[in-house]
């Protein structure tokens, strides 16, 4: 199978969905032909679909997200790019009070088929306003779907599903996965929400990891295989809805769970997964559930500090070894 980059997979998903459905439009800052998106996800799309459908917005997050909400309510399917995940905070009213609740408040009359996609995560010395992982905030809100794909294959299949969803979708792309490559079929495919993916099979311990931490965990699993520890890596891919069955079946099989995400550990989604495992698989556990997340700090600027505050393969490996006797 051909290999393409994550950014190319996302670009293909947008292109294919825009070709398929004339109601799909793109909104965002600098997504047009001049800049092609801060991370080039929208490269070449204005050239194909024109400025009416690929719309460069002013720097007004709350209102261009709100514009997307209103457009979605009335028949368009906007895919809105927020240039950095941190800037989502400028649009929280439209996402949480409007998009998420509109169906409910209107007694089922309104649908808001909007996708809000954004690069997030640390690793480039972008400091505290361009590096956060905020996905857990949105998992708390009824009405939102939360997607966090880790591979090019998942990114493409899930973005296409997100664009076809009639509920609002928060779509988190790690900015340091954009250039990673992986197999993506030429033929069309979709990945349903709520289906976790077992990235590596194993029998001694389950790592439940998201986004960049999936790549780190795969690396650790490969290393530990040589050291005689068999690690299974499960990627939930969508946090809401969460594939409880695949995750809990894996933990029932291995008897041990380590949950890893880049977002700050406190209040992170690892707590929710822990709770789910306790509900579904407590009797199968041979060791306490362990979670590994970011330290409780903003993301610092200078490289050594930035690396220090988020989990890395070394720390993941150490945590596995502590759990497996």
């Amino acid at each position: 199978m051909r290999e393409i980059k994550y950014v190319e997979a996302l670009n293909e998903a947008l292109k294919e969905e825009m070709e398929r459905d004339p109601d799909v439009i793109l909104l965002g800052e600098d997504i047009g032909k001049e800049w092609q998106g801060a991370f080039k996800v929208t490269k070449g799309l204005e050239e194909i679909f024109g400025p009416e459908r690929v719309r460069n917005t002013p720097i007004s997050e709350n209102s261009f997200v709100g514009c997307g909400v209103g457009a979605a309510m009335t028949g368009l399917k906007p895919v809105v790019e927020i240039m950095f995940g941190d800037l989502i905070l400028l649009a929280m009213d439209q996402i949480i009070n409007q998009a998420a609740k509109m169906r409910y408040m209107s007694g089922g009359q309104a649908s808001v088929p909007i996708v809000i996609r954004t690069p997030f995560g640390s690793g480039g010395s972008y400091a505290s306003h361009h590096s956060q992982s905020l996905e857990a905030l949105f998992t708390h809100i009824p009405g939102l779907i939360v997607v966090q794909p880790s591979t090019p294959y998942d990114a493409k299949g899930l973005l296409k599903t997100a664009i076809r969803s009639i509920d609002p979708v928060m779509f988190f792309e790690h900015k340091f996965i954009y250039k990673k490559s992986g197999p993506v079929p030429e033929d069309e495919y979709l990945i349903p929400f709520g289906e976790a993916d077992i990235k590596i099979e194993g029998s001694d311990l389950t790592i439940i990891a998201t986004s960049m931490m999936v790549w780190h965990s795969i690396k650790v699993a490969k290393e530990l295989k040589n050291e005689g520890i068999s690690v299974e890596v499960v990627d939930p891919r969508t946090l809401v809805p969460l594939d409880k069955k695949t995750i809990s079946d894996s933990v029932k099989k291995t008897g041990r769970a380590l949950i890893v995400h880049e977002a700050v550990s406190r209040g992170g989604f690892s707590g929710e997964i822990t709770k789910m495992i306790i509900d579904e698989a407590f009797d199968y556990l041979d060791a306490p559930i362990k979670t590994l997340g970011g330290l409780p700090t903003p993301i610092p600027f200078t490289p050594n500090l930035e690396k220090f505050v988020v989990p890395d393969p070394k720390r993941i490996k150490k945590a596995v070894i502590e759990l497996v006797p």
Binding site: S63, C67, V69, M73, Q94
Partner: peptide, 21 residues
């Protein structure tokens, strides 16, 4: 398209409906 409990929140929604128009 709805009354709205947040002051000013309906304004961008109307703009989005205008984009659909």
């Amino acid at each position: 398209l709805g009354a709205n409990g947040i002051v000013g929140a309906g304004i961008p929604i109307a703009v989005g409906a205008g984009l659909t128009c």
